[in-house]
């Protein structure tokens, strides 16, 4: 099936992280992962930190680790607004590993509710990076 491409951009507070034409997206929403294809209904959704996969026009797929944020689907294209966005090749695996163990440690001894929530968020970020880095066969 010939797939139609649409404009896609990832925006972080530190600048535009990716911009290009894609045919399919796979995003981590608050309520689970979902896909976006061309001519998706206009939508605004909250995203959790996790893996973002994008299929390019030539069929290649790329993976990014992204932070919390939003996705905005319009007829003209898709915009993703996230705290951070690391392409797979730029992920520092050992640092993410360390962050993961640290976050787990903190999550375990529950001193206050807030710290727990924070540790959980940190853990999610580390997991996003690790699972992105672990995806086989992607750029």
């Amino acid at each position: 099936m010939a797939s139609t491409a649409f404009d896609f951009e990832v925006i972080t507070p530190e600048g535009s992280a990716f911009r290009g034409r894609v045919t399919a997206l796979r995003l981590t929403g608050r309520e689970g992962t979902f896909g976006v294809l061309a001519r998706h209904a206009p939508m605004v959704a909250a995203l959790d930190s996790g893996v973002l996969r994008a299929r390019h026009e030539d069929g290649k797929e790329r993976a990014f680790a992204v932070g919390e944020g939003f996705v905005e689907v319009r007829r003209t294209g898709v915009r993703v607004l996230v705290d951070f966005c690391n392409s797979k090749s730029k992920i520092d695996v050992s640092r993410a590993e360390k962050a993961k163990t640290r976050a787990k440690e903190r999550a375990r001894n529950r001193d206050s509710k807030f710290d727990h929530a924070r540790a959980e968020a940190a853990l999610k970020r580390a997991m996003a990076r690790l699972s992105t880095a672990g995806l086989p066969g992607l750029e």
């Binding site: 507070p13 608050r30 309520e31 206009p42 939508m43 605004v44 909250a46 939003f70």
Partner: peptide, 27 residues
């Protein structure tokens, strides 16, 4: 944009958006 799907609810979106917008203002 009235046909815009909002997921989860607008209220929940706002709850996510507010801290982000605050962090952005600090930044």
């Amino acid at each position: 944009e009235s046909q815009m799907l909002l997921e989860p609810s607008p209220q929940e979106l706002l709850d996510v958006l507010m801290p982000k917008s605050l962090a952005m203002r600090v930044f």
